[in-house]
Amino acid sequence: MTYRWILFDADDTLFHFDAYQGLRRMFERHAVDFTPDHYAQYQQLNKPLWVDYQNGAITAAELQTTRFDGWARQLGVAAADLNLAFLESMAEICTLLPGAQALLDALADAGVRLGLITNGFTALQLARLERTGLRERFDPLVISEQLGVAKPDVRIFEHALQALGDPPREQVLMVGDNPHSDILGGLNAGLHTCWFNPHGQAAPAGIAAHHEVRALGELQTLLLG
């Protein structure tokens, strides 16, 4: 076993993140039939906001409210209230990805220390961890909204490493699905990295993970044999 410490991303690495279904569920409560076209329009606004957030150009609060400003005006409600309702809906439909529970159980049984570094928002991440019984599994639990910096900023990784007691970095593995925030960020922090790439996408130029897997069961075999 090479890695004694493993840091995981959350969304689309351990947890299934279906924003469309979460938005549909939330908007049903406002008598809105949220369609794929609505979702495409939402993503046109949401995706650039996430880039700005990860680059430190806007805050978590600005992202969460700005993405719902148009709908808030249309429905006559506060954008912050829509965002909170969306996070609640996402918590209600949360599920672990196939193989996630078995992987985490096996690593814990092997004495590996597990941490979580997520750019997701505090209310949703804590609710999902509680619902799935994983809240106590991760130490440290690093949430960008609480820290004030987001992946790929090296400072969020440094914070996690400090919480781990500053272990040898070649013995720390960062696992995530996003090559820019998870893999590049981990590499810049001097960590070993594993790209969880279930769809077999081509790696972006200049980003080379130490490992790549297409299923969490494959990662379990890689780590534990």
Rank of each mutant, 00 (worst) to 15 (best):
D69E: 14
G186A: 04
P204L: 06
G165C: 08
R135T: 12
V51W: 08
G200W: 11
R169H: 11
L84V: 05
L187R: 13
V154A: 15
L173E: 07
E212Y: 00
H16L: 13
D37N: 12
P179G: 05
P168W: 06
A208Q: 14
A60M: 11
A19K: 09
G22T: 03
L7S: 11
M1F: 07
F86M: 12
G120F: 12
E212I: 01
L141T: 10
W195F: 06
G99T: 03
D153K: 04
A40N: 13
P48R: 11
A102Q: 14
D69W: 13
I117G: 07
G176N: 10
L147Y: 12
A106S: 14
A189Y: 03
N197A: 10
R155W: 01
L104Q: 05
E62H: 10
Q54C: 10
G99E: 07
G206Q: 09
A80M: 01
F34A: 01
L184P: 00
N188R: 15
L75V: 10
S144H: 02
L87C: 02
P198V: 04
D166I: 00
R137Y: 02
M26F: 04
G165Q: 03
W195V: 04
G22D: 02
E92D: 14
T66A: 12
T13V: 00
L87I: 00
Y53W: 01
N55D: 15
G225I: 04
P98R: 12
A57I: 10
Y39M: 09
G70K: 12
A19G: 03
A57M: 10
L97F: 08
R24H: 05
K151D: 07
H38A: 06
C94R: 05
L116M: 13
L147V: 15
Q21A: 14
A163V: 01
F34T: 07
F17N: 10
E136G: 13
T118P: 04
A61I: 07
G176E: 10
Q41D: 14
A189P: 05
T118L: 06
I93L: 12
Q146C: 10
L191T: 02
R113I: 08
L107Q: 04
S144R: 01
R67H: 04
A78H: 04
G206Y: 06
I183E: 09
Q21Y: 01
L114R: 11
P198D: 08
M90A: 06
A57H: 15
P168E: 13
Y20T: 00
A10Q: 07
E218R: 10
P167D: 07
R24S: 07
F68W: 11
D37L: 14
L116T: 02
F121D: 00
D52E: 15
A209Y: 07
Q162T: 12
A60S: 12
L184R: 15
A19P: 01
D37H: 14
L63Q: 08
T193P: 10
F34K: 05
L45W: 02
A79K: 05
D109Y: 00
E28F: 06
H211S: 08
A79S: 12
H159M: 00
E88K: 14
I93M: 08
N197K: 12
F8K: 05
T59D: 02
L161Y: 03
F27R: 04
A80Y: 06
G120P: 03
P167I: 11
M90C: 11
Y39I: 01
A209L: 05
D9L: 06
R4P: 00
R4Y: 00
